[in-house]
Write a protein that binds this DNA or RNA. Structure first.
Lengths: 216, 216
DNA sequence: CCGTTTTATTAGGCACACCTAACTCTATAT
DNA sequence: ATATAGAGTTAGGTGTGCCTAATAAAACGG
């Protein structure tokens, strides 16, 4: 009973991601995320439960230890792939997500190791998210969304939670990328934009985007 | 009607390879090569014919222009992957085949381009086989198998047609790899071994292996 | 030339992962 | 309290790619 076919990996990965915010994941959210019909997901979830990869209760779906282990393995391969694509193959950070979604299912443990070593053991993906280590251990820092800083607060960008290429390009063009220092100059009231200062330039930034940028 | 699902790519790739020696490919050889039952291959062949990717006559199966185009695209990705694995990720030449078999179906045209450029436009895979260009054009040199050289003939190794890792390791340990100059010292009669000289050392080499090494 | 082996196909099934339509809850809003 | 919306499952069906067993046709050795 194999547990690591691409399809299963995709389900577990999605559940893992959704689990971050919404603790037990609902069938409908999962279906939406995977772009599948609700019954398909319902059925597959039953199979995953049989394989002891998820627990399916009234509250929703959550990963078992084993399911979690596999999900993190896939995420590790995804993020290592992204690094390979940017650092070695010269892709921009906005181009790598879809590419990595395909690669993550085609990478063996050996290749994983080789990529990691060739890249000099990177700690994060190009968007700033931590790469789980071989054992699935993830180093978590406590971070604040940029949107919650007050006027005159400073921070260093750690991660940018955004997949849309256009938006990523835009952010990169402003220099809003991991490792960079930002200062909030003003915060417009009533949910208005933030005025931020990045490497000497001032930009207005919507609250929504700002909430996707995490700083420390 | 998609034509480039992994399964189809694998069939076309296999047909392409078998086509090299046996012009129209037989169902049974293809089944053996793909490690599938004959009826499965028979059935799939019908579908490939419907999609105009192969012609299936009494003589056997052969690729159409379109089938050929796709097969070469896959081979290009396979060989570029192998180069990526050896040149950048530090794999040995005997480790890359299986890895590349998985990668070749997960590589987009953009990634193909990026790999090629990052590698400095390599002309061959690590085993010395030509990498088709973007348009599927393959540069073919006329080569002789090492096994056909006479005593005192010299040649430069171009390619090594071998997939068994143990054998590849062995050949590498003797220095029998592409670009290397070999001299045949003696040829034992009755299909016996060749005595070859590689970078100052003498080795006895079976005819069968020698026939897989092509020189110019 | 005929029996045997090899080669290819047909027939019939199975597993997988998806779908739509229809049904059953539950949760709420009036 | 009841109509209704939303979420989740069941039922039934599809396409794909594989299998075994049985059959047909071609190739070959004596």
């Amino acid at each position: 009973m194999k547990a690591d076919t691409p399809r299963i990996e995709e389900y577990l990965e999605s559940i893992y991601k959704l689990q971050q915010d919404e603790h037990p994941v609902s069938t409908s959210r999962l279906a939406e995320h995977l772009k599948l019909s609700a019954p398909s997901v319902s059925e597959m979830t039953k199979k995953l439960a049989q394989k002891k990869l998820v627990n399916h209760t009234e509250k929703g779906i959550c990963l078992t230890q084993e399911g979690n282990r596999i999900a993190k393995k896939v995420i590790r391969r995804h993020r290592l792939s992204e690094r390979l694509l940017t650092d070695i193959l010269g892709f921009r950070w906005d181009e790598v997500h879809d590419e990595a979604c395909r690669l993550e299912h085609a990478i063996s443990p050996e290749m994983e190791k080789h990529i990691e070593e060739s890249l000099g053991n990177p700690k994060t993906c190009p968007h700033g998210f931590p790469i789980p280590d071989e054992n699935g251990v993830i180093v978590k820092e406590k971070l604040r969304p940029l949107s919650e800083l007050k006027a005159r607060d400073k921070g260093i960008i750690v991660s940018v939670f955004e997949e849309d290429p256009k938006m990523l390009q835009y952010l990169a063009s402003l220099g809003l990328i991991p490792e960079v220092c930002v200062k909030v100059e003003e915060v417009a009231p009533f949910g208005g934009p933030l005025i931020v200062c990045v490497s000497g330039s001032r930009y207005a930034l919507g609250r929504e985007v700002a909430s996707k940028i995490k700083v420390k």
